[in-house]
């Protein structure tokens, strides 16, 4: 049972890691990298590491995404239109 849960999470995580590299919109890429952090949190909980899971949830899925999104604004890469392009292509 726990193996199947881990399998679903791992597949989700690897898919969003590939999406980080392939998505043209940087906003979507940052969101996908947060999904990777979230999957990592679930795996840490399954591996009986609650302390690490808490840190990863606060840092990987929250703080890091906020820092990167803020950097997108400062770097002039915050284009929601590109996200729409991605959607049209898909």
């Amino acid at each position: 049972m726990i193996t199947w849960v881990a399998l679903v999470v791992v597949v989700l995580m690897l898919a969003s890691a590939v999406a980080v590299l392939l998505l043209r919109s940087f906003v979507a890429a940052v969101a996908a990298s947060s999904v990777v952090g979230l999957g990592l949190t679930v795996l840490f909980v399954l591996m009986r590491a609650p302390d690490v899971a808490m840190t990863e949830a606060a840092v990987g899925a929250g703080l890091s995404g906020v820092i990167l999104a803020l950097a997108l604004r400062r770097l002039g890469l915050w284009h929601i239109e590109a996200a729409a392009e991605d959607r049209d292509r898909a």
């Binding site: 980080v20 590299l21 890429a29 795996l43 990987g60 990167l68 950097a71």
Partner: peptide, 16 residues
């Protein structure tokens, strides 16, 4: 910027 994102992903793999 995408290199930075990739670096974060590689780091996650090592932590796991």
């Amino acid at each position: 910027f995408r290199m930075l994102l990739a670096l974060a992903i590689a780091e996650s793999g090592a932590n796991l």
